[in-house]
Design a protein around this nucleic acid. Structure first.
Lengths: 219, 219
DNA sequence: CGTGGGTGCTGACGGGCCGTCAGCTGCGGG
DNA sequence: CCCGCAGCTGACGGCCCGTCAGCACCCACG
């Protein structure tokens, strides 16, 4: 959505003051999302917290989820490049490849940590079948998946994987693993499993699955 | 919860007729869950569908989620053994181990297929922080995780993995992968990735990560 | 310097679903 | 036959949603 397309609910084009109010509502939404389960987010609370009324909220967003959607879009835009960049810029040859794999794992975990509140809603809404959030989630993870698939395909051409193994399927599985573990990190910790250990396990799986080789000793 | 603890909302002990009504409500809930997103499940619809009134529903369940919780508990009880059984009964030595890995993957996918509607709610509620559903999810996956961890630990003692790699962390990562891919199977298919390919990729990752060896050629 | 038109905001309201409660129904034992 | 309790329900107050008519404010323009 370009700025030019921004419309209030009644079709008016918001001016300076209106966009400031919209922004305050977005920030208030993001803030409350950190401390409140998003199912318990009430329009009236967001509006009052932003110093305005519920009716004003509906002038800028048709529903609460639409406001979160904007936050998610902002996050996705910056995140997509950030995640795939580590894969693309990394060295996937020899021993260095393990360091790259570990860097990828750490970047994914760090990204989830930075955007935990919004990512939780993205995951939830996607699972509930919301196509808008699904689209954002796919866009975010698509870059990472494609980047990994490219590296895997190169290894396949070098004869390190069976030729009939679908690189996109393998990359998709790896991204699923990364996303799910990152999302449930605190579940694991509660269960007595340290994040360090999770990361090392994932880095080894990532390394082996991408390069088709055993992890270097000492990794 | 044992049968002896079954109580209606007002503390009465349900008799034969009451338990039949409760059962009808449960079946109606399960039925509607297959066609309706669980957020759109209305108490009144369940009750009317079961030929009774909303107030009756509340006599047996404090809220809709509690009814689903019962369905989830039934599923978990049977599923836990079913999933870990494949790991425990499988042969993890040599070439046969790949077939075992593939069998595990297929069993997990089949389980999700059988219980997709309830599993979706379990995953959703867990992500939203509901401790009751989290407990069920953990119980369901715990058997599988422990079974895998045991096999991994045996391989570690045989010198196939670094001694300081946490088997539970590795097993947890693998189960995350399996659960997430199984839950998003149709998302992948929509994206042009065939379930067959996903299963083969996962079987190879599972085999390698558990045994510490390269998959047999032709797998 | 007023004044008209458009932007910004809101109180108030109807509607839907929730969860509760007092009370009616009817079954089964005595 | 009838009494008591399990079983069931209509009706209700409450919460939150999303809408709408209309008031307040700003500023460009005559």
């Amino acid at each position: 959505m370009t700025d030019a397309e921004l419309r209030a609910a009644d079709g008016r084009v918001p001016g300076r003051r209106g966009r400031a109010t919209r922004q305050r509502l977005l920030e208030q939404t993001a803030g409350m999302l950190r401390s409140t389960s998003y199912r318990d987010l009430k329009v009236v609370d967001i509006a009052r917290g932003a110093g305005t009324s519920p009716a004003t909220f509906y002038q800028y967003f048709p529903e609460v989820e639409s406001a979160i959607l904007v936050l998610a879009e902002e996050m996705s835009q910056a995140g997509s490049a950030r995640l795939s960049g580590v894969v693309r810029d990394g060295n996937w040859k020899g021993r260095a490849a393990y360091d790259t794999a570990l860097a990828v794992v750490e970047e994914v975990m760090a990204f989830w940590e930075d955007h935990r509140a919004v990512m939780r809603v993205v995951d939830l809404a996607t699972d509930e079948g919301d196509q808008r959030f699904r689209k954002i989630r796919v866009a975010l993870l698509n870059g990472l998946t494609n980047a990994l698939a490219e590296v895997i395909e190169a290894a396949t051409k070098a004869g390190r994987h069976p030729a009939d193994l679908d690189p996109m399927a393998t990359a998709g599985v790896l991204v699923s693993m990364l996303a799910h573990v990152a999302a449930h990190r605190y579940g694991f910790e509660f269960w007595g499993i340290r994040t360090d250990d999770l990361q090392r396990s994932m880095a080894r799986i990532l390394y082996t699955t991408v390069t088709g080789q055993k992890p270097p000793s000492g990794a």
